[in-house]
């Protein structure tokens, strides 16, 4: 695999270029990620939204090189710049090699939806953080423990000096999520990948965790890739948004453009199907007809055309659309983007 010779712009932290991830299964080949390109700048929050099966988590795992054994990373480049000047092509590193292990946990942290399964049940919170710190920072036990306590305080857990010796089962869901954030941030990563971190939480706890992530992001200046299916959460935390459908990014743009001037029919339809608080009562919710097609036989042409209200026969069902670009870095993968009838979205 040849490394792209054009260097990334200075503000760029992570760049994905035409990434494909396929899974070979008994039933056939699943193209879970089918040509995804996005980038993350230093210190920004990129929200990735999509329904289940859109490939948003698989893409994130490809960045961490944590894909299952039957995954085939077919093609594409993932580049990451841990420090100024040094560019690493993650996609060409061996997944269990020294460099990748240094990046994983050291420069890129990750938090998951279900902290109970992501944390070890047989080690205390402190031990888990200390191991990461000792591995990446080469410090002694005492220093690592002090760092663990400092981190637990940072994520606003009560009584951090006691909490450090607790086990995950002794904590509530919200506290576990805080502990996992502390673990992911233990080595001051430049990038945090958050995969549905608030989905399993109650709204009041979700609000707490979102506020915490926002304040930590401000304080530590890391970039966040925030994966979620909840448009409300994205509106709250993201600077830019990428919308995924069936293994592709169908639209990207600033958070305001995505919410107030969506260019792709899928983004529009999704936004219209959410009941909003305080909205004048509507009789029926708008829906998207049909369901996400199964990935073994994705539709020809634009993969959204069977469910799209604007689909043009002979065009959308035959030719896969290219990416159309708009001002302010907004882009949409749709033949009709920019030509759709004006609609009041809000």
């Amino acid at each position: 695999m040849t490394i792209d010779t054009t260097p990334m712009p200075p503000e760029r932290l992570l760049e994905l270029d035409d990434v494909h991830v396929h899974f070979s299964m008994r039933e056939g080949l699943v193209k879970a990620v089918n040509g995804v390109s996005y980038h993350v700048d230093r210190g920004e929050v990129l929200g990735i939204v999509g329904e289940s099966g859109s490939g948003k988590s698989v893409t994130a795992r490809a960045i961490m090189r944590l894909l299952a054994k039957n995954a085939i990373q077919a093609s594409g480049h993932i580049r990451f710049r841990p420090e100024q000047g040094k560019e690493v092509e993650i996609s060409s590193l061996p997944r269990d090699g020294r460099k990748m292990r240094e990046l994983r946990g050291g420069h890129i942290g990750m938090i998951f939806q279900e902290p109970m399964t992501a944390l070890s049940p047989v080690h205390s919170i402190g031990t888990q953080i200390m191991r990461t710190v000792m591995l990446h920072k080469r410090v002694g036990k005492e220093a690592a423990r002090a760092r663990a306590i400092e981190l637990l305080e940072k994520v606003q857990l009560p009584k951090p000096s006691e909490m450090v010796d607790r086990y995950p089962h002794q904590l509530s869901g919200g506290m576990r999520q805080r502990a996992m954030i502390a673990l992911a941030l233990s080595c001051d990563p430049a990038l945090l990948i958050a995969d549905e971190p608030t989905t399993a939480l109650d709204v009041t706890t979700e609000a707490q965790i979102l506020e915490l992530l926002k304040s930590l992001q401000e304080e530590m200046g890391m970039a966040i890739v925030f994966i979620t299916h909840n448009f409300g959460v994205v509106a709250d935390i993201a600077d830019r948004v990428a919308v995924m459908y069936l293994g592709r990014i169908v639209e990207t743009g600033s958070v305001d453009d995505i919410f107030y001037q969506p260019k792709h029919p899928y983004t529009r339809a999704l936004l219209q199907s959410i009941p909003r608080l305080g909205q004048a009562p509507v009789h029926r919710l708008k829906t998207i007809p049909g369901m996400v097609p199964d990935p073994f036989n994705a539709p020809r042409g634009c993969s959204f055309h069977p469910r799209c209200a604007y689909s043009v026969a002979g065009r959308c069902d035959v030719y896969a659309p290219d990416v159309k670009r708009f001002p302010d870095d907004q882009s949409a993968r749709c033949h009709l983007a920019g030509e759709l009838p004006e609609e009041v979205v809000l």
Binding site: A235, D236, F259
Partner: peptide
């Protein structure tokens, strides 16, 4: 509860009306 619900409306961020409850 009402103020904690994340709204699909980025402009609300500035208004900062969210009440974050302490504890659990």
């Amino acid at each position: 509860l009402l103020s904690a619900v994340p709204q699909p409306d980025p402009r609300r961020r500035e208004s900062g009306r969210r009440i974050v409850l302490k504890g659990e």
